[in-house]
Every structure is written in structure tokens, then in C-alpha cells.
Design a protein around this nucleic acid. Structure first.
Lengths: 193, 193
DNA sequence: GCCGGTGCTTACCGACCGGTAGGTAGAATC
DNA sequence: GATTCTACCTACCGGTCGGTAAGCACCGGC
């Protein structure tokens, strides 16, 4: 290849956004490339002009979406001095951002190459997992949180949130901020007496 | 209809088990009726002999699997006098039982009729959700757990567990009992000091 | 010895899937 | 003004999807 020089015009962006929206709503196998092309107001070959195949589009969607949420999430994770407030702020962002990438990543339905898969997972760790773990580590270090396996706890938090992110309807009609507060209350204080 | 009188022979059971296994591994849209028929060592029309269509099979799989796990789960939920032990016991069963039904239920990918959907959800509440909530309610009543919205907490517990049930590989190579203990430790004691 | 129901099969259907062949309008380059 | 490249199109491919028509082997009842 003499020059990769991938185009970065607005069409490519429209396809990425359409794929994120439709796959987020229906799952990767629930929306075809025809659907996505229609949603982006282009034809299917145009999708193939920008992406090698379905799994390449899948990876690109995840990486792009994770990347564009990474910054705001890290910012939210710095808001509020105490661990509890930083957690609420980060979780509220995760819930409100309607970001489907982590769920899509877990689907992994399409056959990804090892390389694509590791690329997507690395983006997930960098932009989503690690800011959360950082809050926990800081909290432990500051003596506000007890000693624990912070990787396990961060994963548990993301698991807990997962069915509630990227959705319009939250349990009990809560707002993102309320749900985040309730979840953090549950997990910080525990349910024991 | 003069008489439902559905057959209950071993073929029907084989189809149900095959659908549970394949759909649990690959998702509802990831395994076709041809795949399921092959796995059950019958032909596709045989599937249609026992089930009206794909969504009827979907509902039947979920209800059947939930039903057959309901008893053991309730038994596990009674083991151990203290709330903490009862929770560990119930969660360890959920993790170890490799039951895919709740995840499939959430997929809901296929178009279910309102009736089928409510039937499946009712089975889920009866056999999975309510035993868990019962432990929490008992714990609150006995003064072992703090006052809380037990429905919210039970849902959060199931969410937290969801990515780890029905899988062969658990995080950190844990056994079901270990994972249940860690999860209950996290949620009962909390991560705050 | 024929009949009708049960439990299953072979052979097929139209719709839709991911993916491709081949062409073209228009801007950029020379 | 001829050439080349970018960004996109129409039209189609082989394969797979959920679902069906039609019939066959086996059975107990008469």
C-alpha cells in the first residue's frame, strides 16, 4: 500500500453514527448494512468504500465512540473531591451519554480478527475501564475506600450499569444523576448494617 | 381449539435443550433454526411440528429453563441462616447453573407477542427475581440488612451477575462459589470505609 | 385389511443477508 | 483540454434465513 490516507469526510462520520445508533438499538445482527446505509442516506457500496467489511465497520464504530466519550468521562471523573462524588459524576456521565459501545463490544457477534478485537478492547480499557479504576485507586490511597481488588470492583460497577446505559428508559423513571447516586449509594455503603 | 394436548416426548425436550445451548452461546440471532434442528438431530419441519414459529420456541425455551431452575434456586436461597450466607448460596447457584434464560430474555430480539413476552417475564420474576428479593426482605426484617429498596437492589445484583452467568470462564479463574462470595462481599460490606 | 392420527421426512419457497462488478459525475492535476 | 483520481452509484451474486407443502412409515382401533 503506497498511502493509506483514509478519507475523513462527513459521509464516513454519518455511516459511523448510523451504525452506532442502529446496532445500539437492535444489536449487531439486528440491523443489516442495508439498514445502516439507508439510515446514513447512502448506498451499501459506499459503506464498503470506507470500510473493508462489516467487522471493520464494527471495530471502527466501537473505537470511534469510545474515543469521543473518553475525554468527557475523564473530566467527569475529576469532578468532586471525595471518591463518592467522583464516582457519582462518572457514572452519571456513563448513564446519560447513551454510549452503546461497551455493550456492542461484549456482543462481539461478528467474527473479528485478533488484531481488531485487541484494538477495540484496548480502547475500552483506556477510555472506560481505567478512569473508573483510577477513582477507586485514588479512594483507597486517600483512605476513603477500603482496601480491595479495584479491577474486580470496577468491572462489577460496569456490569451493574450495563443494562442501564444507552437506554432511554431508566428504572423507576430516574434521571441519570439519580440512578448514579442510587448505584453509588448501594455499592459504597453496602447493604449490610 | 378443541384440545391443546401438546406432545411431551423426548424429541421436544431435545429441541428445547439444543435451542437453549446454541442461543445461550451465540445469541438468538446467532443460531438459526437449521442449526438448532441439526444440534437436536432432527429436521427443521420437526421443530415446526412442536412449535408454531421461532418466537414460540424462544418463549418455550425461556419458560422451560427458568422453571427447571426455579426449584433448586429457592432451595439454595434457604441454605444458611444468615442473609449473607443465603445470598452467597443463591448467587453461587445462579453462576454455576449456566442458565442462559435471563440473558436471552433481555435480548428479546425476536418479535414476541405481548402475551408471550408477559409469560416469559412472569416466569423470570417468579423463579429468579423474587427468591432473591425474598432473601433481601428477610434480611431487612431480621435487622441483618439495612432498610433499602429491595427490588432495586435485587435487580442490581442480577445485572451485576449477568455477564458472568451461563459462561464457562469466570473472572480471575474463580469457581462459582468464590465469585459469589466476592460479589456478596462487595455488595453487603460496600467499598466505603 | 383398511383407516386415521402421530411423528417425522424430503424438497422447496420468497425475502434478505454480506459482499462485489463495473460504471460514472465531477473536481483536481498536468 | 486531456488525464487521473475521488466519491459514489445501479445492478447483481451466492448463500442463508424463517417458514411451508406434501407425503411417508408406523401405530392402535375397528
Amino acid at each position: 500500500m503506497p498511502k493509506p490516507k483514509r478519507p475523513t469526510g462527513s459521509t464516513r462520520e454519518r455511516v459511523l453514527q448510523a451504525a452506532d445508533r442502529l446496532w445500539g438499538e437492535r444489536g449487531v445482527r439486528g440491523a443489516s448494512l442495508d439498514d445502516i446505509a439507508r439510515e446514513a442516506a447512502v448506498t451499501k457500496p459506499t459503506v464498503y468504500y470506507y470500510f473493508a467489511d462489516k467487522s471493520a465497520l464494527f471495530t471502527a464504530v466501537i473505537c470511534s465512540v469510545l474515543e469521543q466519550h473518553g475525554g468527557p468521562l475523564k473530566t467527569a471523573a475529576r469532578r468532586g473531591g471525595r471518591s463518592r462524588d467522583r464516582l457519582i459524576s462518572a457514572l452519571a456521565y456513563l448513564i446519560g451519554a447513551r454510549c452503546n459501545a461497551p455493550r456492542l463490544l461484549r456482543e462481539g457477534g461478528v467474527t473479528l480478527t485478533v488484531d481488531q478485537n485487541s484494538q477495540a478492547r484496548s480502547a475500552f480499557f483506556r477510555h472506560f475501564f481505567s478512569p473508573l479504576q483510577q477513582i477507586l485507586d485514588d479512594g483507597v490511597h486517600a483512605g476513603e475506600l477500603r482496601q480491595m481488588d479495584t479491577a474486580f470492583a470496577a468491572q462489577a460497577l460496569l456490569n451493574l450499569l450495563d443494562p442501564w446505559t444507552g437506554r432511554d428508559q431508566l428504572p423507576g423513571g430516574r434521571e441519570p444523576q439519580e440512578l448514579a447516586t442510587d448505584v453509588v449509594g448501594l455499592i459504597v455503603d453496602g447493604i449490610g448494617v
